[in-house]
Simulated assay, not measured.
Amino acid sequence: MAADDGGNMDSNFSEEKLMKIEAQAAVREISFAVEFVEISTKLPNTDERAYMNIRTKEGTKFCVELTVQGYRIVGSQFDNTDDTTDVSDSIFYETIYALLDQHSPKYRLTFGETLAGKLQCLQQVQGNEETTEVQ
């Protein structure tokens, strides 16, 4: 089992076990701002690595790999890792949002519009609560 040397090994073990869970959460969180997203059923998803298929609102397809290093694009088609992808040349993104922000202007626009809409709803709810308290 993992030794407790200040939490480092336990922490790494926990992060690796969470790859599939994190990929599932990412699918749920970005589905509103992309045309299509799923966890790959053809590539091997493990506790250390998960693959997602994403089609942006621009119609661009990506196969995205998630590891403890982060998210990176590994292919330009669903369920396909390009043999030409060199790990040393790959850009890893800390979050799926950062990856999409860099590669999909329509994602950025949709995210901003959705956030503005939620803030407006929150403002209306707070305004209604203040009106109710005054009466």
Rank of each mutant, 00 (worst) to 15 (best):
S76V: 09
Q126P: 03
E48Y: 15
E130F: 09
Q69L: 09
N12V: 05
H103W: 02
S88F: 15
G75N: 07
T41V: 10
F62W: 04
P105T: 10
E129F: 10
Y97S: 02
K61C: 03
T56K: 01
S31K: 14
L18Y: 04
G75L: 07
L100R: 02
E129V: 12
N12G: 03
G59R: 05
Q77C: 09
A50W: 02
D10F: 05
G127V: 09
N8H: 12
A33W: 04
I73N: 00
R55C: 05
Q69G: 00
I21G: 01
L119I: 07
R108Y: 07
A3Q: 09
S88K: 11
D82P: 01
E15M: 14
R28C: 13
L109D: 06
D89H: 14
Q24N: 13
R72F: 13
N80T: 12
G117N: 11
V64C: 06
D47F: 15
E94H: 12
M19N: 07
P105I: 11
S90M: 12
N12W: 15
M52H: 05
E130P: 00
T81M: 08
N8R: 13
K42P: 01
E133S: 13
D82W: 11
C121N: 05
Q24H: 05
A98C: 10
I21M: 09
T131C: 04
D5S: 04
D83L: 09
D5E: 04
G70P: 01
Q123E: 11
D89I: 03
R28I: 15
Y107Q: 00
E29S: 15
V87E: 15
R49F: 11
N12H: 11
E48C: 04
G70D: 04
L18C: 08
Y97F: 15
F92C: 11
A116D: 14
Y107C: 00
F62N: 00
P44D: 15
L43F: 03
G70I: 10
V34I: 03
R28Y: 14
F92L: 08
T46W: 03
M9T: 02
E35D: 12
V37F: 07
G6N: 06
Y51C: 01
E16R: 11
V34Q: 06
F111R: 00
Q135K: 01
Y93S: 10
M1A: 14
D47P: 00
T85K: 15
D101K: 14
E94L: 13
